[in-house]
Design a protein around this nucleic acid. Sequence first.
DNA 1: GCAATGCGGTTTGTATTGCAAACTAGTTTG
DNA 2: CAAACTAGTTTGCAATACAAACCGCATTGC
Lengths: 102, 102
Amino acid sequence: MSDDLRGLNDLDRLIHEPARLLIVTILSTAASADFLFLQREAGLTRGNLSAHLSKLEEAGYVKIEKTFKGKLPLTVCKLTAKGQKAYVAYRQQMQSFMDKTG
Amino acid sequence: MSDDLRGLNDLDRLIHEPARLLIVTILSTAASADFLFLQREAGLTRGNLSAHLSKLEEAGYVKIEKTFKGKLPLTVCKLTAKGQKAYVAYRQQMQSFMDKTG
DNA sequence: GCAATGCGGTTTGTATTGCAAACTAGTTTG
DNA sequence: CAAACTAGTTTGCAATACAAACCGCATTGC
């Protein structure tokens, strides 16, 4: 076993974080999702979700649009092309690891 | 897509950390490995490897034996049964995630 | 009319991390 | 005996992740 597994060390930490992996995964299949949908689906507290979304936005992985639903704020999130690409790359690296060490 | 992906939130963070995932993976196939072998194989600095091993030992995932090779210190590491179990569980969760979102 | 409650989030506080750089203890080399 | 090497450990610090407190606005109870 001298396979080159060191690729693990290059994993995108932003996506590697489970909560964010979850968020990005959901967004990757949903085209767009509002804050509360994400919260329920991911099982995160509002505070946590907010912080993680900010981080993903900062990285340019998601785009966040704030509008209103009637009179209440509504936050809608989308994966950007960059985010999609990073997600695909992450999956590919992780699957490659799983395959090599199966 | 309303699959239950929230399992990700229960991932064992100790193993999820890439450096440690690498270490544990190597140990899982090597039966036993000395410090320098691990360092080379995992591509970690000595400081980092030392810190991660301590953490894994604290958790009872690896057993560390300090002996001598001639007159030089030699640190030998093994995965414990507990560590092996945690590793298998981690892989299973991660693979399950990959499969569900393939 | 106005306190209390609820909604949709954001900010703050804190304890934990992961890493690099400095350090230690002993050994060999010049 | 001084300098350099081996095999690690400890330290310092910036960056996390999470919970809890907070915020502005809207509605409800009285």
